[in-house]
Design a protein around this nucleic acid. Structure first.
Lengths: 119, 119
DNA sequence: GGTTGACCTGGAGCGCACTCCAGGTGGAAG
DNA sequence: CTTCCACCTGGAGTGCGCTCCAGGTCAACC
């Protein structure tokens, strides 16, 4: 039952302390355990969940949708089909982002070649 | 010398009219020609530039940097090396974005497989 | 020539996702 | 024991990139 101090979580997840508090406040993170003094002590599970959050966030999922996902997770195993649906939809959007970026990158590279050719 | 009305430009570029006006206001778009009534009449060149803007914007370039690029373009051909440098830097960031998305996508897909396996 | 609708301007407002601040408590190192 | 630093809360503020609005002008079609 390892626990992590706020500073450790900041270090490991790359989220700022303010962001962690913000995520807890809006319910993206379930209420975090506290020590006697009221300071946060994050669990292994919290760390794992924050890893998921980072992944979804970095792939452009809006907070509102992460919140829906968080609620599904908290609601229990019967929501697994819904979670799959949500992640699959997101996966499609991520694929779209990647394809779009690759196409735009081609344009940028053409532009660079063009500039090189007129030097 | 074809010219385009605001509505046509909205249609072709996908930018809203407000966004076009905003881009002109901040100087991302050079002052657009007007007809006698003061209404905008966009040139072929404006359309081309808007295509570049769309590409840079969709690959996550901040407006401040697009502005620097716009200034280089307006400053004349002697800035071409600087433009190449700017686009190459951006290209590297785009590659980073793509790599990151691909990696995150793997995580999402693992998560989906996991959920499928426990159904 | 009337009406509709595209367009104009300057400026305020918005949504997102944080980020910062004031004012305070608790714990740990020397 | 004191000093310092991590941490706490509620709430205000920020930055980005638009987006909307009021109040008005033109123009084009019937």
């Amino acid at each position: 039952m390892t626990v992590y101090t706020p500073a450790e979580v900041v270090e490991e997840t790359g989220f700022s302390l303010d962001t962690l508090r913000y995520y807890e406040k809006i319910g993206l993170l379930a209420p975090v355990d506290r020590n006697a003094a009221g300071q946060r002590r994050f669990s292994e599970d919290d760390l794992g969940w924050l890893g998921t959050i980072r992944c979804l966030r970095d792939t452009g999922m809006p907070i509102a949708q992460m919140l829906r996902f968080a609620e599904l997770v908290r609601a229990g195993d019967h929501t697994i089909p819904d979670r799959i649906a949500l992640l699959e939809e997101h996966d499609i959007r991520v694929r779209g982002q990647i394809d779009n970026l690759i196409e735009r990158q081609r344009y940028i590279q053409h532009k660079i070649s063009y500039y090189r050719s007129v030097l």
